[in-house]
Design a protein around this nucleic acid. Sequence first.
DNA 1: ATTTAGTGAATGAACGTTCATTCGTCAAAC
DNA 2: GTTTGACGAATGAACGTTCATTCACTAAAT
Lengths: 212, 212
Amino acid sequence: MSLAATHRSLDRRPQILDAAEQCFARAGFHRTTMQDVAGEAGMVPGNLYRYFPSKDAIIVALIERDRAEIAADFAALEGSRDLMAGFKTLGRKHFVEQPREKSILTLEIWSEAARNPTIAALMGAVQAEVRRGIVAVCRNAQRAGEIPADADLDAIARLILTLSDGLIRRRALDRDFESDREVENLLCLVGAVLCGTISLPPCASAVSSTGI
Amino acid sequence: MSLAATHRSLDRRPQILDAAEQCFARAGFHRTTMQDVAGEAGMVPGNLYRYFPSKDAIIVALIERDRAEIAADFAALEGSRDLMAGFKTLGRKHFVEQPREKSILTLEIWSEAARNPTIAALMGAVQAEVRRGIVAVCRNAQRAGEIPADADLDAIARLILTLSDGLIRRRALDRDFESDREVENLLCLVGAVLCGTISLPPCASAVSSTGI
DNA sequence: ATTTAGTGAATGAACGTTCATTCGTCAAAC
DNA sequence: GTTTGACGAATGAACGTTCATTCACTAAAT
């Protein structure tokens, strides 16, 4: 009580965000009351409004916090030498190590983004960040000769995004989802696409509607 | 007024489901009131309860209706000769032809499934249906020699599921999403995996953490 | 004394659900 | 052909609850 518990000038925002994250993942945004969040944060409802102007502002802050983290992750990768090792690190961090609750929260954010323009915009920003990161990192690899110079980086970024979103949804809801194995498999696939085993945009070989 | 408008014995459930689908896609499940649904269905709130015992029951019925449709889609495919053509038909139907609102509604269902056990169970059923369908259709193709006999059908089904979920999320929220092109590309990729250009589970070639 | 942090009861709007009532149609009775 | 009674469908005004937000107040720190 004397030293650590002296709450003066201790910014409560991270604490509130942690509490909200917990609650939103557990019960969803709309089923979580401000009383719930306050309780989880060890304070009383009214006090939340000293730190956030509204319930909505809390999710917005939550997403913004995520965006910053992702941006940092990619920044750390940008100088990296080994492309696939970088993807592996990122993939493992976000889909294996991070608790499943994060995926559930992401579902919540998606559903919210479909109505709330502020959240939609923020999500767009996050996604742009990711896309930019992927392209940048791939361009590095291109210059180093790791992957073909004519690879369609944008198409690759889109592919990775689609796969990531699929993983998030499955991890959040499939009872028997083995993130470990799934991430491994998909990285494999991305690797194959990256080194040109499969060409994406022109759909060169294989597959036509008359037999494979 | 004389013939068609005589509303006797006209089952209002489909009409209510259509209205609810519209509303839920527009405003989300929790932001849609029973008054909204009633209004959209051209009736009054109280009357909804003659056809559904609760608001929850309406989403449940909505999902069940979807499950039936998907089951039918796969059933129609099961006898088909050309594997990829079948996938293409399904892919186009669900990700290109169907209105974007369906994807948004799916986001809503996902977020709801994370708390409501009934909905989670139903979603599990839908997914099991899809997975079974994919495996069945692929097994046919295997017997016909369209794809290698040793292909890991379960892994392929999981891949397709992940891709589908990713597509749904992107179609629902990405402003500049071109479903047409994206579906085409991904079908390409699935085709390549199917005919063994890339092997998934053992991660045979390519990609290790020491360079591609 | 003044500022800052925290309290928790109160408020008022929103919403899912209920229910007493009305409406429209049909069929039997006349 | 008209009347009557019955019944399912539809109404819409309430009810009771839940919940985001407010605010008058206290406690502590400076």
